[in-house]
Design a protein around this nucleic acid. Structure first.
Lengths: 244, 244
DNA sequence: CGGTTCGTTGAGGCCCATCAATCTATGTGG
DNA sequence: CCACATAGATTGATGGGCCTCAACGAACCG
């Protein structure tokens, strides 16, 4: 999730970006955090997508979080030395990083950064809850449709009107997000194409019928908590004490 | 999760408990937060269990978080006016509450409380990630076994040796956690009983073969992040600046 | 005792996994 | 430039895990 964008004041943002280490290019499948291992840095994606995942003993993988450019890939490392899940690049890309100690020190000295981190953690929670609803209670087709809606919003900012956006995930990676097999993801994509709701061309995804897709998926973007100013009208940001 | 227990210093804890409102008894199924509604208080359970849930349009329910006595039921209300999911009692019980504004003010003035809240949010994240792994990639039997292990740890603190504990959830509520139907939960319970791994008597659950159950579920309590002192040996709490 | 909630069990069917094969890039070295 | 290897997309056949529908028993309670 966009950590930096949650830091409103320029001063806090400068303090944060000033502590970032140098950028590093990464190939697809590069491991940022080993599953069960430790991390002494948090990674901020500059380019490419990363995924937080857990695996079963027999190698089945479940992706439990997607990090897009601007997002923090392993926020949990701030609170736990061993976050318990792995983080790896899903595409090639570029990251910058911040030492956990440095980030903790920043949070301790800057209320606004501290609140941004808290809010971010709870936002990831909201997204994961939505995924859990899908994993537990929705059909494969609905889950796929829902993920496409979510990614459209996260990539281009809305689902109003037909949208084309870059979806760099393989069908296998989509399957690991949706709790399905790659084969079935393929069939569900075909089904959505057949209904005229999406079109695909290589890595480009086009949502032809956003209305229909949202209805099918029961997608309501409220859980992404965009534009907090709009959604919390009765609590306009108090500029002085900046509480959340 | 245990918010109060994460606040180490007596002073901060006193400040926190001092702002708690009076306790209120609640019947089973009482709604603490309406799904899609707002909440201006966060609820701390004193007795009984509560569940965070989301529902689909046709009424299928998925529970995305369990709150046991001592846990905060709707931490997310601190960051978002509309958390997006509902919270209701799964048993009868008792809660106390804290106004969100008061809690935010506390967090702004007390670093330790602020960090406890952040850590708590990330802990819920870790638990939900583990649930997502189960929902997406494990069998019904494994999921049930895993939940029983988790609850044993959360209720009595460990899974070493045979354990008996109070499990006040109906099979329907278990089904809503596990993404199954009540009928299938019943069959899986029977299956575990048949293997001699658990015994049930009314609301009491006895784990006869913890080792076998953990192996079946691939349960590793690390994700619950108990005893942070043990798990982060190289970062003993700095008493002065108390960073996380 | 009638009503309600919860647990239990059976029969049948569908959604999605599994296994397997083909096809299309894309890249790589000779 | 071609032979070959690899990754990913696509499609078919088959089976199983879990859902659905249905009924009944058990415990509790006003």
């Amino acid at each position: 999730m966009r950590l930096v964008s949650l830091i409103a004041s320029g001063e806090s943002r400068r303090a944060f970006t000033a502590t970032m280490l140098s950028a590093r290019p990464l190939t697809a499948h590069a491991e940022l955090v080993r599953e069960g291992g430790e991390a002494e840095k948090i990674y901020v994606l500059l380019e490419g997508w990363a995924g937080r995942y857990r695996t079963t003993r027999d190698g089945r993988r479940q992706i439990v979080g997607l990090a897009l450019p601007g997002d923090v890939a392993n926020l949990d490392s701030l609170a736990f030395a061993r976050p318990g899940f792995g983080v790896r690049m899903l595409t090639s890309g570029m990251t910058t990083s911040i030492g956990c100690d440095a980030a903790r020190a920043l949070a301790a000295s800057d209320l606004e950064i501290s609140h941004a981190i808290t809010r971010l953690g709870l936002l990831e929670n909201a997204i994961l809850s939505e995924w859990a609803l899908g994993l537990g209670r929705k059909s494969a087709e609905q889950r796929l449709a829902h993920l496409l809606c979510e990614l459209a919003v996260r990539v281009v900012g809305s689902t109003d009107g037909p949208i084309t956006f870059e979806l760099p995930l393989t069908q296998e990676q989509l399957a690991d997000v949706l709790g399905l097999t790659p084969v079935h993801v393929n069939r569900m994509l075909r089904q959505l194409r057949g209904k005229g709701q999406v079109e695909t061309a290589g890595r480009r995804m086009r949502i032809v019928d956003p209305e229909g897709l949202r209805a099918l998926a029961e997608f309501d973007p409220a859980y992404l908590h965009l534009e907090p100013a709009c959604r919390e009208p009765q609590r306009p940001r108090p500029s002085g004490n900046g509480v959340f």
